[in-house]
Structures are given as C-alpha cells and as structure tokens.
Amino acid sequence: MATFELYRRSTIGMCLTETLDEMVQSGTLSPELAIQVLVQFDKSMTEALETQVKSKVSIKGHLHTYRFCDNVWTFILQDAIFKNEENQENVGRVKIVACDSKLLTQ
C-alpha cells in the first residue's frame, strides 16, 4: 500500500515526529524503528481519513499562488472561507497542499 508522507506535517504527525525525535536522540529508540513508526503512521492516518471521516467542506477564497510540482498541488489562498456542516472559519491566509489521490490507488 502506497502512502503519502504528507500527513506528517499535520499536528498529529508533527507530535509523533517530535516524540520519535526525542526518543532517538536519547538513545531510547533506533532511527530505523522510528522510521517504521512514521511509515505506519502514514498508513494509519490515510486509512482513518478514508474510513472514519465523513464530513465535507467547501473552500472559497482568493487564489494568491498556485503551483503544481511533482504531482503535488499547492495553493495559497487569501481571505479564505471554510464551511462545513457545523460552522464556518475565515482565514486571512492559508496554504493547501494536496497530493494526487490516484497515486494511492495505483
């Protein structure tokens, strides 16, 4: 199963990375094992998003920057509005990083 390392930049991924970092630095954990944990996180996070999350979001905003490189879209929006079923969030500036979903299914 292919995975993205994309989600490592999320809060949960960063927390895990920091934790592994500390444990490797303290000698508690081997770097190889730490990487295995990260890879497992990639899988588990992707799977959880597919199977456990049902909500939908609409995003509107002014597209300040777009970029498509290595099958990754990057958008920088200004004055963006995020709406889901529950509420709405306004953000002055937000970055969207999106990998090609087809890469996972190949």
């Binding site: 999320s10 809060t11 949960i12 998003l49 597919e50 999350v53 049902k54 909500s55 939908k56 979001v57 609409s58 995003i59 509107k60 905003g61 002014h62 597209l63 777009y66 958008f75 929006l77 995020f82 889901n84 969030e89 969207i96």
Partner: peptide, 13 residues
C-alpha cells in the same frame, strides 16, 4: 484541527 472526507474549492486567481 478539522478533518474532512471531501472538500470542494472554488478560488479566484
């Protein structure tokens, strides 16, 4: 932190 299953975006450049 907000998770979504699907999102649609409409942007003006």
């Amino acid at each position: 932190d907000i998770l979504f299953n699907k999102a649609t975006g409409e942007f003006e450049f």
